[in-house]
Design a binder for these strands. Structure first.
Lengths: 396, 396
DNA sequence: CTTCTTTGTCCTCTCAGAGGAGAAAGTTCG
DNA sequence: CGAACTTTCTCCTCTGAGAGGACAAAGAAG
């Protein structure tokens, strides 16, 4: 199939595409209820979209009591590729234009191997998805990387945990390889986009998404749009001081949040505890697997292990401490907790909540939900698809 | 004089008014260079603005090498009232439509006396300015209050230092009294608007303004617009924990920034130090005035008093600690320090800079200026005038 | 004085888009 | 089953915004 290269010709068409993306098939009449356009104008724009092939007819709509109307929908053959590059694994997924996931692969990987090796793996994963019949090609791709990105150019800048990626033209290179438009962003921002599109943040305009994985980052949404900061490093909260004169951090300072709580820190602390004989449960797991991960701590806590629970509570306290500050400053309408450590679930959430509600003023916390992300590992790839669709479904 | 009640009829007119406000008198040709409109359309819109009286002819423009053109400017008889209510004093100023200050009065006052008493004072100050011939009436007024505001309604919400103001219809009441449109905002947000309009932040889109006065607050500008948060309490950084298990704060927690550094905290600490005989300089001033203020500490520091310098440095350290966190999170392009404590000047600034540059990652601080505000006590009233002019110079 | 440049004015032409009339296709109720 | 009412779609006309060109006015440069 030849890929679609059409783009909406004006803001009306862009708006219609976004409505069809977010609301699925719709009749012209239903669309008319949502956009402020005359019927004639609406019909003209829809016809033009049909001509471009971005939109296709989709049978009769359900009756609303009078003449039945014909539905239109986004072309079901459109395909987006969503890529979420983490520190230690990659997620690659194919979606349709309505951003429904049609296929999803996760593989372990090490970003430190550099962009060339990682792209090879990503491309082979994309090829596998294509080979399984889910797509004949891609109309666009969104990529998330675990570090700051100069957004307009799609280039990582000085990413601490991705040596070798600094300045690598990710967007350009992938666009060449895939032969379609590509947008690049920080993985946490994509997670925020994902939760906004299909998760807990659907109705929010100003919210924060805290992603606790190998590191810790925060996605910031202001007025419905992701805020990236002057140099693209906004939300980099892993190195905010959580404990004065605390643990030495890789960044050179002491007491950074990330040094006290993150997937990596948790694994390290659990291993220490196991070795010092503080927890039989953890020691068993250490012996069995030859190493401990955040998932082991989660399992131990679920089994009632006090040491594991303490580690989680202490980490939640540190995280809550930092989030409390952010809440005072930013006054969000929602805080979403997500990332690999979400497996720690409600123990972690409870510890964070306690700390935030204790430390922030009532005006900011009064009506502030703090919740776990709804989409889990798919948040990133949905966000990636959303990113590129936002780009493609805006006036050229 | 009858007051202008006209408003721009469309976005083009609004844009033209803003250009004339920010750029002063301009010829049609110069305006044409700045807005993307055909000459005919531009002429029509300017003529309409002339008809409304918002804009008047202003003689011949300087020659640009061909036919001389006629200037237009905002009606020089337009008057805005800017009111900046602080914890312990009020500033009231009159500006023209180009937001130049024509007259400015400052008087001591106590917000805790409640809205009725304060408004009486504000109105009498406004009357005094009017009586001095600066204005025959006001076309709009902006008001800043030292606490969170529900912005659309112009009503303070649960302001900690303003008992009696909670829910008081400030906008409505003042609009009645003055007979003109009124907008209300947090004083720190107005300071940010002021520095953006006429101060150090003129070229910035994303920046923070930290105001250290009786309390501490932070104005947040995102994409050129003030960000106010979900409930209007964004930027309330005075109660972020700066020192774990630190001093008891009025809010019930311990170690809040405001408990360790602010005009009030500084005065308290200086008094303590003087009473304990740690500083002859401060003790003298205490004896002379019967009390100490931040200004006394500034003077003592200027005179070389080590204790005063220490207090300032220690305060700067705490403040810098908190700002470092905000910088990591928000990645601003500029941080402005302002408020009553600006008198502490470069000692304070140096301490803050040291702490921020030490604690934040290079990517966020690499090109980050941290500077003192340029407008001093006029920032608030200019911001107030800017607030109402933005409102009036936008399509009705 | 001539030529060139800039600015202001006027006129026409195009096109987006609103809104109405009426046809088409259902539903509901007697 | 048929009449009356609803909803949707299509077509047509009308209006107004705005672009753009022609030309006049006014000055600068030589």
């Amino acid at each position: 199939m030849r890929r679609m290269t059409a783009r909406p010709a004006n803001a009306h068409q862009a708006r219609l595409l976004q409505l069809l993306r977010d609301g699925g098939p719709n009749s012209r009449a239903q669309l008319g209820d949502q956009v402020d356009l005359s019927r004639s104008k609406l019909a003209v724009e829809v016809d033009r979209l049909l001509e471009t092939g971005l939109v296709v007819a989709d049978g009769l709509a359900a009756s609303r009591g009078g003449r039945r109307s014909h539905n239109v929908r986004l072309n079901p053959e459109l395909r987006f590729l969503g890529v979420d590059i983490g520190a230690t694994s990659v997620d690659v997924a194919v979606t349709n234009a309505e951003l429904e996931i049609l296929g999803h692969i996760n593989q372990p990987m090490d970003v430190r191997e550099g962009p060339v090796a990682v792209f090879e793996q990503v491309l082979s994963m994309a090829a596998k998805l294509r080979a399984s019949g889910l797509a004949e090609g891609f109309d666009g791709a969104g990529i998330g990387v675990p570090g700051p990105v100069r957004f307009p150019e799609g280039v990582p800048v000085a990413p601490p945990i991705m040596p070798g990626w600094d300045g690598f033209p990710v967007r350009e290179a992938l666009s060449q390889e895939l032969g379609c438009p590509v947008m690049v962003d920080n993985d946490v921002n994509l997670m925020a986009l994902g939760e906004q599109h299909a998760g807990v943040a659907r109705t929010q305009h100003d919210f924060l998404v805290v992603k606790i994985g190998t590191g810790i980052g925060c996605g910031i949404v202001v007025g419905g749009d992701v805020y990236r900061g002057t140099t693209g490093s906004a939300g980099d909260i892993g190195h905010i001081q959580a404990v004065p004169d605390g643990r030495q951090c890789a960044c050179g300072n002491r007491g950074c949040l990330e040094a006290h709580f993150s997937g990596a820190a948790l694994a390290r602390d659990a291993t220490e505890a196991a070795q010092q004989g503080q927890s039989a449960e953890l020691a068993n797991r250490l012996a069995a697997n030859g190493g401990l991960s955040a998932a082991d701590v989660a399992a131990a806590a679920a089994a009632g292990d006090a040491t594991a629970l303490d580690l989680i509570r202490e980490g939640g306290r540190s995280t809550g401490q930092v989030i409390a500050g952010l809440v005072s400053f930013f006054n969000p309408g929602l805080v979403v907790i997500g990332g690999g450590v979400t497996g720690l679930g409600h123990n972690l959430l409870a510890a964070i909540r306690t700390q935030v509600y204790r430390q922030s003023l009532p005006l900011a916390t009064g009506n502030l939900p703090i919740v776990l992300g709804e989409l889990g590992p798919t948040a990133g790839v949905i966000g990636a698809a959303r990113l590129i669709s936002d780009h493609l479904f805006s006036p050229a």
